[in-house]
Amino acid sequence: MSNFWTTFKGNKGAVVGLVILAIVLLASIFAPMLYTTSPWDMVNMPFMAPGVDSSVPLGTDTLGRDIASGLAHGAYISLLVGFVSTIVSLCIGIPLGAAAGYFGGWVDDVLMRITEFFQVIPSFAFAIVLVAIFEPSITSMIVAIAVVSWPPVARLLRGEVMSLKHREFIEAAELSGQSGFTIITRQILPNTISPVIVLASMMVATAILTESALSFMGLGDPNVMSWGYIIGAGRTVLQQAWWISFFPGVAILLTVLAFNLIGEGLNDALNPRLAKRRG
């Protein structure tokens, strides 16, 4: 573990990512305390530029709502959608991939055809259709993102499991009469945790991007203030009020960047073999 931290700390980018993520996390936790009123409240004049009034440091939107408050409350939504949808897609991808890799044969064939099937449908377009069908809400967005993003998990797991399957300790476990299920959960999965964590951190980033794109297209939950929503709502006034779309865009960029940087840091720290290869 100490070795892990040394390597991770050695990666400057990863540390920067961690700092950004910490800020976003703090914002999402303390937003209700910093901004006690709802981010939907019209607190000031519409179209207030940033820096004009210190009570609304980042300006106001078309209805006079505080952008800073919206950003703080939006952090929670972005992280929530990012984490939950990633967890859901791991829950789909890991069992499928592990089963395909361990059992091989027709199981592998069937499962991989299904995976391929989901990879062939353009994922963002598919997510749009899913959200539209189940009516836009936080839940439908999470489900849609999870449904389109599990295939890489399944593929990764399958590969890892296939390479582990013929190791001595697995064969030993098989000889000792353990069931397939036990071997997968007890022996194999713990050994695949590192690449999965790395992939998951990247997936959180992608999920946040997808959430913002869906909200931008008007398919977000209309009752929650999210970053993508603010950009979408400010888009038509881009020329009069650049700040409405600008700040949430930067927020998304930094958060996504943070997860990618952390992902790389984790990759270096957890997969020394790969890290060396990456130079």
Binding site: S212, A213, I231, F246, V256
Partner: peptide, 30 residues
């Protein structure tokens, strides 16, 4: 590898990757 130009290229690439596509499009139009 390891020189300044390497990290500049990698950083720029990462930034583009982290930027929401629609937002980049809007900023480009602007």
């Amino acid at each position: 590898q390891g020189k300044a130009s390497d990290s500049i290229i990698s950083t720029i690439a990462l930034l583009f990757y982290a930027t929401p596509l629609f937002w980049m499009a809007l900023m480009a139009v602007l």
